[in-house]
């Protein structure tokens, strides 16, 4: 019957004129990312492996990383101690596996805490503007004047060597640069119409900061955290290597390279080579991931890393 009604008939084309893009699942995004950024994908895979190793360290290690065995000092790689033992007879492989926990813990905590504080300072500094902004920016100038390792060493000198102090020291180091970048991002956001609209409907300072400005800094924030995370792993290793980071018994990759590893590099090269290799592989892949994320999430930052 429908055909008989000539006028007003809706012609349904064989193919739709335009297609809504299929709703993409998280998996689609991952596949897309892997296709567009193969190097970044390699980085992501290594990052996942690192997280896996850190979580299951107690299952993956075949020795206790702290046990000192005098009889097995500097024994080379065997079927039992895969990567040999160090100057106290501790198993290098197990220490590297547990070291993943230390590196990841310091990396995540310090970059996340530092960048979060930087985010708050950067956004608030723009929002309040005027004198507040001027004073905060001069303070940040002062902090940024320090070479980062020197500042971290100075803070460690004040706080004393411990794992959480390393986190605090590195977090402080990452605050100023993050605050500076997010400040310029917020300056752009502040001029956006939706901020004006929010103010017009009577939103208060904190509501604008938390609900409008911060979420729009989020992509940039994630990129900065990723970039700092790799740097934090190296920085932790550097501090521990100098003996001002984690205490010597803690299985930190940098700490493992300290002291005896250098003196006995000829007789027991494995003690120095494998932890160093772990740092290089992890940081290298992390940088690849960070570069790829930066390109995908915020192309404006290209070439700044």
């Amino acid at each position: 019957m429908a055909q008989d009604r000539g006028a007003g008939r809706v012609i349904i084309p064989e193919r739709p004129i335009f297609v809504l893009p299929p709703k993409r699942s998280a998996m689609n995004h991952v596949v897309e990312f892997f296709k567009r950024k193969p190097l970044g994908a390699v980085g992501a895979v290594v990052a996942v492996i690192l997280v896996f190793v850190a979580i299951f360290a107690n299952m993956l290690a075949n020795h206790d990383p702290y046990t000192i065995r005098v009889a097995e000092i500097f024994s080379g790689p065997t079927s039992d101690t895969w990567l040999g033992t160090d100057h106290l007879g501790r198993d290098v492989y197990s220490r590297i596996v547990y070291g993943a926990r230390i590196s990841l813990y310091v990396g995540i905590m310090s970059s996340f805490i530092g960048c979060t504080i930087g985010l708050v300072i950067g956004v608030a500094s723009v929002h309040f503007g005027g004198l507040t902004d001027l004073i905060v920016q001069r303070f940040i100038d002062g902090m940024m004047a320090f070479p980062s390792l020197i500042l971290a060493i100075a803070i460690m000198a004040a706080l004393g060597a411990s794992l959480n102090n390393v986190v605090i020291a590195l977090a402080i180091v990452y605050i100023p640069s993050t605050a500076r970048i997010l400040r310029s991002q917020s300056m752009v956001i502040k001029e956006m119409d939706y901020v004006l609209a929010a103010r017009a409907v009577g939103a208060g300072n904190w509501r604008i900061i938390i609900r409008h400005m911060m979420p729009n800094c989020f992509a940039l924030f994630i990129v900065i955290v990723t970039i700092h995370l790799g740097g934090a792993i190296i920085a932790e290793a550097s501090l521990s290597f100098l003996g001002v980071g984690t205490p010597p018994n803690v299985p930190s990759w940098g700490g493992m390279l300290n002291g005896a590893a250098q003196s006995y590099v000829k007789t027991a090269p494995w003690v120095a080579i494998f932890p160093g290799l772990a740092i290089v592989v992890v940081v290298f892949s992390w940088n690849l991931l960070g570069d790829a994320l930066r390109d995908v999430l915020d192309p404006r930052l290209r070439g700044t890393g």
């Binding site: 790799g230 090269p269 120095a272 080579i273 160093g276 740092i279 290089v280 290298f284």
Partner: peptide, 20 residues
């Protein structure tokens, strides 16, 4: 990219190792 990831102390130890 590798050069940025390479901590200078590990490179230094490798150099000493090779020289030794």
């Amino acid at each position: 990219i590798g050069g940025v990831a390479m901590p200078s102390f590990w490179l230094a130890i490798l150099i000493i190792f090779l020289l030794v």
